[in-house]
């Protein structure tokens, strides 16, 4: 069996940075409540695409950067994204063969677990959080945006030959 050499790491890092940027972009308060979970979506995509390369550690590192980016206590997003990466990694074979709607629903569930993990850790650190139901709104928006996002990222992956 031929092992493909890994390539396109910089492109992958770039997509994470753009996701971080989108996470920061100023938005009106009314829209900001439903801001999609960009970093989480990019993470799930790369795990589905390259489960051999991207995994729990990548999720952890992306999470730590998110923590610094958002001024959050270090480790909150770290553990949440690592958990999300683990769950995605253990179900990627099924996720890949799902139809569009089914896959979006699965992504909704995955991101929902991640969002609740963040919620739990934030409130256990004594921070003021939104109600659990409001926490799900960004997850729902992300699930709706999942298919377009997947197509865009796939084009990027093929174009820049990320393996």
């Amino acid at each position: 069996m031929r092992v493909q050499p890994a390539s396109g790491t910089s492109v992958m890092v770039f997509t994470f940075l753009v996701a971080g940027l989108l996470q920061l972009l100023p938005m009106p308060a009314s829209l900001s409540v439903g801001r999609p979970l960009w970093i989480e979506m990019v993470l799930v995509f790369w795990i589905l695409a390259l489960p051999q390369r991207v995994g729990v550690f990548t999720g952890f590192v992306a999470g730590l950067l998110t923590d610094v980016l958002l001024g959050q206590v270090l480790g909150v997003y770290g553990i949440a994204l690592a958990l999300l990466a683990y769950l995605t990694l253990s179900s990627y074979t099924r996720l890949r063969v799902y139809g569009a709607l089914q896959q979006s629903i699965a992504v909704f569930l995955l991101l929902g677990v991640g969002a609740f993990a963040v919620h739990i850790f934030k409130s256990s650190l004594g921070q003021n959080t939104l109600s659990p139901l409001a926490t799900l709104l960004p997850v729902l928006v992300s699930a709706i945006l999942w298919r377009p996002m997947l197509n865009i990222l796939r084009v990027i992956q093929v174009r820049f030959m990320v393996r």
Partner: peptide
């Protein structure tokens, strides 16, 4: 992956506590 997750979770808890 399970052990990785456990390792990372442990690390995260330590980080959270210290931070």
């Amino acid at each position: 992956p399970v052990y990785r997750l456990l390792l990372v979770a442990l690390l995260s808890f330590v980080l959270m506590f210290v931070d």
